[in-house]
Design a protein around this nucleic acid. Structure first.
Length: 246
DNA sequence: ATTCATGTTGTGAT
DNA sequence: TATCACAACATGAA
């Protein structure tokens, strides 16, 4: 579920609850869920992997983490972390992290950092990357402060699409290559969104969870890499390492 | 049956 | 004080 494009789908599916009043609330969250009862939803928004239910004065932030899920107008056996009932349906979240955001969302979030947002600002991303020249690109793409919404699948696919080795240093990328990484982080995220909506995302993976390079036919490398130590799939022949090994 | 993974936060050690 | 490594969370797919 949980990369940025999937949260956009959630936001679109939940849009029918905008303007609706919470009639019933329940769930096993430790938060004071009662706070939402009787309150009207001002907006349903998202920032990166955060799904935001905005009320007047505060918002509920839902993060699906690795295993989280949701159901609209449906239930399952597992106990919901939070269940919101409206006159026109229900919104259920399972195995997720909840948090209240106090005050206006525009003060809590910089929408320019969300790769899925209309406000996305590639120049700002470049400026942030300039401050971490020693970071590996496989870590930089997962940095939610730079690329909010990018997750491990998008990371792997983008690096293959731009033919950059995941262990490359941010500061060693030629400026045009860095520009392509920033551009493709957004472009592929929207491609991901379209494929996911059509239920054909998985079949379009080029390297993620794959064993052979679609470009040269060679065996893909698979290793846990970077300070985040996440699964990384790449082709040592087709993806260029910056700086080049000595 | 067992392992592992689209992710983040908090804790305790260094 | 700051940084780091790891545990915890929790569920379905392979």
């Amino acid at each position: 579920m949980p990369e940025g494009p999937s949260i956009v789908i959630l936001r679109e599916e939940a849009a029918k609850f905008r303007g609706r009043t919470v009639r019933e609330v329940s769930g096993n969250s430790k938060l004071d869920l009662e706070r939402m009862r009787g309150r009207k939803i001002v907006a349903l928004r998202s920032w990166g992997k955060h799904f935001l239910i905005e009320f007047r004065g505060f918002s509920l932030r839902v993060h699906l983490l690795l295993f989280g899920s949701y159901l609209i107008d449906a239930e399952k056996e597992a106990a919901p972390r939070v269940s919101l009932r409206f006159d026109n349906g229900t919104l259920n979240f399972y195995a997720c992290s909840l948090k209240y955001i106090e005050g206006p969302l525009d003060e809590a979030y910089d929408w320019r950092g969300d790769v899925m947002a209309p406000e996305w600002d590639p120049k700002l991303a470049r400026a942030k990357l300039k401050k971490q020249p020693d970071a590996l690109v496989c870590d930089a793409l997962l940095d939610q402060d730079v690329f909010a919404g990018v997750g491990n699948i998008i990371k792997n696919e983008v690096l293959f699409r731009i033919r950059v080795h995941p262990a490359s240093k941010v500061g060693a990328l030629p400026p045009r290559t860095l520009g392509r990484m920033i551009e493709d982080a957004r472009a592929y995220s929207f491609q991901f969104l379209e494929w996911k909506k059509q239920y054909v995302l998985r079949q379009h993976w080029l390297v993620h969870n794959k064993s052979l390079c679609p470009n040269c036919g060679g065996k893909l490398a698979r290793q846990h890499m970077g300070v985040r130590n996440r699964r990384t799939f790449f082709c040592v022949r087709c993806q260029v390492l910056y700086p080049p090994p000595a």
